[in-house]
Simulated scan of single mutants.
Amino acid sequence: MQFGIFTVGDVTVDPTTGRAPSEHERIKAMLAIAQKAEEVGLDVFATGEHHNPPFVPSSPTTMLGYIAARTENLILSTSTTLITTNDPVKIAEDFAMLQHVAEGRVDVMMGRGNTGPVYPWFGKDIRDGIDLAIENYALLRRLWDEDVVTWKGKFRTPLQSFTSTPRPLDGVAPFVWHGSIRSPEIAEQAAYYGDGFFHNHIFWPASHTKQMVNLYRQRYAHYGHGTPEQAIVGLGGQVFMRKNSQDAVREFRPYFDNAPVYGHGPSLEEFTSQTPLTVGSPQEVIERTLSFRDYVGDYQRQLFLMDHAGLPLKTVLEQLDLLGEEVVPVLRKEFANRRPANVPDAPTHAARVEAKRQEVTQA
């Protein structure tokens, strides 16, 4: 099972100091956080894509390329890439290039985004969101899988005998996750292609997550990719830890209360009881994370959101130390002990290259 972190790259006022970092400071902090993730033994770093304040990660492949040059083991991902407003040709080229730069340590998460105004900024209509996601991804798959593509669709100009360059590393495209919070159409799309399904799992109750993941698993089997248990599932999560749970709650409360995404609404106690947000000791994070398996089954990737809501870099790095030293080693062992033999490992480039080689050998 893979463990890692994802960032939304928000520039938020620290409520304890009244100061917000500059965009430059926030970007540099994200780079430091990624390198810390590798240092403490995590598997994945993922960045969102946003094109509006107060967020800074408008060019994920630029950031991930920099991180690739300064890490050796970390899988680099997005969380998410906007399949609706980005040109599929540019996605195909950018991520194939990143594959080569990072020696295959790359995958990508497709999503529609959660900011309505981004559509007209890129010449699109939000009412076409689902249709754009379906058409653009179908084209992207062809651009990666076929050396020469002739194509015509509804939302972009046709392609005639077009070759996307560079070609995917080792002839194997980046593994694709489809990220969604609420759209069953996206779970269906992931199942149709046999791709991974990532449920953000940070705002909604367990019953909703269970429903979405079960839909994906059932449809994955329906399309003939394997049993429901063999479907590739990832989950998000939010945690804040201190050695003592009371200290964690006391320190995190002002950040929660003022966070743009959930502040000024339910109390911290209400939110932690109704969603996967866990604020407490490392042991409480371990127990809560292990409980996710009870309603989604065995899964392959767990990413945590840890650098949001104005938390200072020093605090985030302390959180990563706790995650890497006290939480993830226990979770690795416990999830491995509980996983049945028929549940696949998390996908990696090396494993997928080997699977392709075996397919060719057996053909």
Rank of each mutant, 00 (worst) to 15 (best):
A355T: 07
P260S: 11
F55K: 06
I134V: 14
F335R: 12
G280E: 06
T275K: 07
R332M: 05
F3W: 08
P57G: 02
G41S: 07
K90Y: 10
M110E: 02
P347I: 07
L331A: 03
A190Y: 02
N244G: 08
P166E: 01
S22G: 04
D10W: 06
P340H: 11
R112S: 13
L303D: 05
V89M: 10
P340T: 09
T62R: 10
V89C: 08
R339E: 05
A309I: 05
T78E: 01
M109L: 13
F45N: 02
A92Y: 00
I181L: 11
R338L: 13
R338Q: 14
V172M: 09
A20P: 05
A138C: 00
G171W: 01
V40P: 06
D87H: 13
L215W: 06
F335A: 01
Q358S: 05
A341W: 02
H222F: 11
L317M: 07
V106F: 06
R70H: 15
D94R: 11
T315G: 01
A138M: 04
D107M: 12
V172R: 04
Y299N: 02
W151F: 03
A173G: 03
V149F: 04
L139P: 00
T17S: 14
Q211A: 15
D128S: 08
R105P: 12
P254Q: 07
V261W: 15
A355I: 07
V40F: 03
E49V: 11
T163I: 08
E49D: 05
E251T: 02
E23S: 00
H225L: 06
I91L: 12
F155L: 01
W204V: 15
G4Y: 03
P60Y: 10
W204C: 09
D321H: 07
D170L: 07
Y66A: 12
V44L: 11
P266Q: 14
R156N: 03
M30F: 05
P228D: 04
W177K: 01
R127P: 01
S281A: 14
R167G: 05
G263V: 08
R293Q: 15
T47A: 14
I75P: 00
A336K: 14
R112L: 11
Y220I: 08
G194Y: 00
G194Q: 09
R339Q: 10
T361E: 13
P54M: 06
A341H: 11
Q35S: 03
E318K: 07
N114H: 13
G263F: 03
E185W: 10
L277Y: 14
D128L: 07
L140A: 04
L139C: 02
V89F: 01
N136K: 07
E93C: 07
V316R: 05
A46E: 05
K314Q: 15
R217Y: 03
A37V: 09
G18N: 05
R219L: 15
E318Q: 14
P53Q: 06
I5H: 02
Y119V: 03
G237I: 11
V89N: 12
E325N: 14
I202R: 06
A102Y: 10
E325H: 13
P276N: 04
Y255V: 09
